[in-house]
């Protein structure tokens, strides 16, 4: 069984926000909300500063606190690709998952249920890439099976230095950023 993940090359990302717009169009994300977003990070001491631009979203963690805290099982790990999903008609809107996520990846849909990135499972089931990956003009985003040693995501992780977000939170995120 696959274990989907994403690899994003921060050396190629220009922060054009095509991924954000594609997600909103593909998933009918309500106005004023976003399932993915762009972060610009500047670190260092002048004049030796470095900047990283990256596309962020739900990390579909291997150790997902949002799933553990859910009182109804609405937040769950989907067997297909072991991704973290929300069943809207089981969500009571307690918002514990929003508080439990260290990445701020979730929001309350105007209809009341918790919402977030799905890795576009409906597209992946048809053999397509998630919408954000498919529209990236610099091809900095790669989607695939982390359990397949021959997958492109594993080839990239084996050939480049990478980091994940907030590894100290212990959530084992599955979005990897190439340095």
């Amino acid at each position: 069984m696959a274990r989907f993940g994403m690899v994003i090359d921060t050396a190629k990302c220009v922060g054009c926000m095509d991924c954000v717009v594609a997600c909103q169009t593909e998933n009918d994300v309500p106005h004023g909300h976003c399932r993915d977003w762009i972060v610009t990070e500047v670190r260092g001491t002048y004049p030796t500063l470095e900047m990283e631009i990256r596309s962020e979203r739900c990390n579909h963690c291997d150790n997902p606190p949002c799933v553990y805290c859910c009182p109804t099982g609405a937040s769950h790990v989907e067997p297909f690709g072991k991704t973290v999903q929300v069943t809207a008609n089981r969500c009571i809107g307690c918002k514990a998952c929003l508080a439990a996520c260290p990445y701020g990846a979730r929001f309350v849909h105007p209809e009341g249920y918790a919402d977030k990135c799905t890795f576009c499972l409906h597209r992946v089931k048809e053999g397509k890439d998630p919408a954000c990956v498919s529209v990236c003009p610099t091809r900095c985003m790669h989607f695939g099976d982390l359990d397949d040693p021959k997958s492109e995501v594993n080839r990239l992780l084996g050939s480049r230095k990478w980091h994940t977000l907030l590894p100290e939170a212990g959530t084992k995120p599955r979005i990897f950023y190439l340095d």
Partner: peptide
């Protein structure tokens, strides 16, 4: 220095 700028603007989550 660490300066983070985000385009995320979700109600109840940001700032």
């Amino acid at each position: 220095m660490l300066e983070i700028t985000s385009t995320r603007h979700n109600p109840f989550v940001d700032p």
